[in-house]
């Protein structure tokens, strides 16, 4: 676990030190949220479920950017080989990468949510929305870390990653959007059920990704 944290810490340090990428990811998320307003007219009171969808699409797109980067950076600099030479097993490398992706995404989301709340007058800073954001992002980052490793060796990794990831993440997207829409509508019924379901997805997806990662990075 300590080793996983060290890998995560290393990645996060690189991100924050360069700062450009995290900033770019954040700017991209905000631009997406604003652009989707022109597509769906989200400011009108009856568009709460569209707003929930727009929010999660923005998060998923930002996440896709972040993921494409996580392992591509290592491949480009050739540091993954170095990491593989160290006596650290694949699962630990996965946990490190996963945590780094998760934390940088949560950072972007933490800034986006209050902005979203202000722009659309929706309770996006509600504890339930924050809880859902965390739970939804864990599942995304879990499968995402595995598939960014799979896609990174390809020549077309930018296209390959969403093509592989989006279909498999349908349950997470569905659950997260439905539950967020319920909060936006000012209701409570059914949130807990979706939340529990998302937690179950997280457990399954992160476990699968953890187990699969060792098979992917063995060279």
């Amino acid at each position: 676990m300590g080793r996983a944290l060290a890998i995560a810490w290393k990645d996060i340090l690189i991100e924050f030190r360069s700062r450009q990428f995290l900033g770019a990811m954040l700017a991209f998320t905000l631009v997406t949220v604003v652009t989707l307003n022109f597509a769906f007219d989200l400011d009108r009171g009856d568009r709460t479920s569209d707003a929930a969808g727009a929010l999660w699409i923005a998060f998923f797109f930002a996440g896709m950017l972040g993921l494409g980067r996580a392992i591509a950076l290592e491949r480009d600099r050739g540091t993954l080989e170095g990491l593989l030479l160290t006596p650290v097993d694949g699962g630990t490398i996965f946990m490190g990468k996963f945590l780094a992706t998760l934390l940088s995404l949560l950072f972007v989301e933490a800034v986006t949510l209050p902005v979203f709340a202000v722009l659309y007058g929706l309770p996006a800073w509600h504890p339930w929305v924050i809880a859902l954001a965390i739970v939804g992002t864990v599942g995304f980052a879990g499968l995402g870390t595995l598939f960014s490793a799979i896609a990174s060796s390809g020549r077309t990794r930018e296209v390959l990653l969403p093509l592989l990831l989006f279909p498999l993440l349908v349950p997470v997207l569905l659950g997260a959007v439905q539950a967020t829409a319920i909060v936006f509508q000012g209701e409570r019924d059914g949130i807990l059920a979706w939340f529990n379901l998302l937690v179950a997805f997280d457990v399954i997806f992160v476990t699968l990704a953890y187990l699969g990662f060792s098979f992917v990075i063995e060279e």
Binding site: L146, I150, S153, L164
Partner: peptide
């Protein structure tokens, strides 16, 4: 190897 991992995850 990659395809097998994808197929197994898809199956679940």
């Amino acid at each position: 190897r990659f395809a097998a991992v994808l197929a197994i995850i898809g199956a679940i």
